[in-house]
Structure formats: structure tokens, C-alpha cells
């Protein structure tokens, strides 16, 4: 549980760094076209967050499935 949460934080930190790096590399990408890529980044983060939670539930279910198999 804790590891899942930690990995989530790690991924998000990496994402931050990536974005900061991208910004340095290509000038002001996130500020271009009226800052629309800020909205894109926000939507991507929400998507990633939900996917990570899905992954966490998926792993939990796999464990339960294995338990059921063992019981049988």
C-alpha cells in the first residue's frame, strides 16, 4: 500500500522534472498558444493518477485471484 503511494509520488516527481526540463530545452513550450499546454498537462496528470490507482486495484485483485486459486 505504502509502496504504491510512494511509487505514485515518484512518477509524479519525475513528470515534474521532465516538464521543467522540456521547458528549458524548448524555450517556453508550455506558455505557447495561450498556455494551452498547461491544460494538457493538467489533464494528463489526472489521467495518469487514475491509471495508477487502477493499477493498484488491478494488483490487489490479482493477489485475491491467486488466493482463490490456492484455496481450490
Amino acid at each position: 500500500m505504502i509502496w504504491n503511494r510512494l511509487s505514485l509520488v515518484c512518477v509524479l516527481t519525475l513528470l515534474f522534472q521532465q516538464m521543467a526540463f522540456a521547458q528549458q530545452a524548448s524555450g517556453d513550450f508550455l506558455r505557447s498558444i495561450g498556455h494551452i499546454y498547461v491544460v494538457v498537462a493538467v489533464i494528463l496528470i489526472i489521467f495518469l493518477g487514475i491509471v495508477l490507482f487502477l493499477l493498484y486495484l488491478d494488483r490487489k485483485l490479482t493477489k485475491l485471484e491467486n488466493q482463490i486459486k490456492d484455496n481450490e
Binding site: L8, H35, V38, V42, I45, G49, F53
Partner: peptide, 26 residues
């Protein structure tokens, strides 16, 4: 609480990004 916590974390991170480009800092 799990779902609420996920939404809260996402709200914080998305807010930080929005803040970076409007208020100037994450």
C-alpha cells in the same frame, strides 16, 4: 477515503502546475 485521497493528490499536483504558469511557482 482511498478515492478521495487520490482526488486530493491529483488536485494538489494539477493545482501546482496551474500555479506555476499563472502565479509563477509550483
Amino acid at each position: 477515503n482511498r478515492a478521495g485521497f487520490v482526488f486530493g493528490l491529483l488536485g494538489t499536483v494539477t493545482g501546482a502546475i496551474w500555479a506555476k504558469y499563472t502565479w509563477g511557482a509550483f
